[in-house]
Amino acid sequence: MSLDVKHFYLGFADLSLFEDAQLSIAEGEIVCLSTGVLDGGTSFLKACAGIVPYQSGTLLVDGEEISHMPADKIFRKVAYCYESGGLVSLFTVYNNIALPLKYHRNFDNDFVAKRITSVAELLGIASILEYDVHQLNDVQLRLVNLARALVIRPRLLLADELQSGMSPAMREQILAILKDYCNQTRASLLMTTTAGDSHSIADRVYRIENKKIILESP
């Protein structure tokens, strides 16, 4: 699923985050966006997911303006993984992962259970499915957010600083899973990264500089 961002302006009140930013991702590509402190990386991802409105420019998902797409269409094709938060505190891990399948689809309980079990085992979180959200550490929270995204089998996956806090071995394992997913489904992945994160699976790496998105390495 392609993503095309052109002449992109985003800000809040008197704070301007992006001015005339550009970024294009083709179907099946993996792109990392290297971010710093409070430079707008999270807000950019949320705009790409249709969560945060932007002031002007175009943000096209498969050629369709994200702001014009109905919510159910976005939920079926685009998934955003929160760096922190994003989960319902009153729900177990299982029920959090089940949310997009139960509320935006008409799958029966057996199908939902099989899909969740498959993704949980893949990510190594099957043992915490009955945990409450408050029992999770930061890495587990990010993995549960990732599982909730993957259960819908999105065409565009947006992951915010997913690697934070992971050991090198876990990081490479999760990145390999994401690369395999993109290779098998032709889904596209845009992932923000921070200092110490790996860009090993990226087709290209960009950084945020002076309110623009700059190519760092092909």
Results as ranks from 00 to 15, higher is better:
Ser43Trp: 10
Glu216Cys: 02
Gln140Gly: 05
Asn95Cys: 00
Thr42Ser: 15
Glu172Asp: 14
Asp108Trp: 06
Gly50Val: 11
Leu23Tyr: 08
Val112Arg: 06
Gln22Thr: 13
Ser2Gly: 15
Phe91Met: 13
Pro168Gly: 06
Ser24Lys: 13
Val52Ser: 03
Ser34Gly: 00
Phe12Gln: 11
Ala126Asp: 15
Met191Lys: 05
Asp197Pro: 00
Ser167Thr: 15
Leu23Pro: 04
Arg153Cys: 12
Ala49Thr: 04
Ile116Tyr: 07
Gln135Ile: 00
Ile177Tyr: 13
Asp72Ala: 09
Pro53Asn: 13
Ser127Asn: 15
Val151His: 12
Leu175His: 09
Pro218Asp: 13
Ile51Tyr: 10
Thr58Asn: 10
Val119Ser: 04
Thr185Ala: 06
Gly41Arg: 01
Gln173Arg: 15
Ser200Ile: 12
Lys114Tyr: 03
Thr185Val: 02
Lys211Arg: 15
Arg153Leu: 11
Gln140Thr: 08
Ile125Ala: 02
Ser2His: 11
His134Asn: 14
Gly85Arg: 11
Ser118Val: 06
Ala113Tyr: 09
Ala120Val: 03
Ser34Tyr: 07
Ser217Tyr: 04
Ser118Lys: 14
Ile97Ser: 06
Val52Tyr: 14
Arg153Phe: 03
Ala187Met: 05
Glu83Gln: 12
Glu161Ala: 06
Ser16Gln: 14
Pro53Ser: 15
Leu136Ala: 07
Leu90Glu: 15
Leu45Thr: 06
Pro100Glu: 07
Ala202Trp: 02
Phe91Gln: 13
Asp197His: 05
Asn95Thr: 06
Ala195Gly: 01
Phe8Thr: 02
Arg142Cys: 04
Gly63Val: 04
Val88Pro: 00
Gly36Cys: 02
Thr192Glu: 01
Gly85Trp: 08
Asn106Pro: 00
Ala49Met: 02
Ile30Cys: 09
Val119Tyr: 04
Glu65Met: 10
Phe12Thr: 01
His134Ala: 13
Arg142Leu: 00
Met1Gly: 11
Ala202Arg: 01
Ser167Val: 05
Asn137Gln: 10
Ala169Lys: 13
Ile66Phe: 08
Arg207Asp: 04
Gly36Thr: 10
Val5Arg: 00
Pro218Cys: 07
Ser198Arg: 05
Asn109Trp: 04
Arg148Glu: 05
Leu136Phe: 10
Ile66Gln: 03
Asp160Gly: 02
Pro53Gly: 08
Gly28Gln: 10
Val31Gln: 07
Lys114Arg: 14
Leu33Glu: 04
Arg148Asn: 03
Leu87Ile: 11
Gly85Ala: 09
Leu141Ser: 06
Val52Phe: 14
Asn95Leu: 00
Met69Asn: 00
Ala47Asp: 01
Thr117Asp: 14
Gly36Asp: 03
Ile214Ala: 08
Gly63Thr: 02
Lys212Glu: 12
Lys114Gln: 14
Ser67Gln: 12
Thr192Ile: 02
Ser188Gln: 09
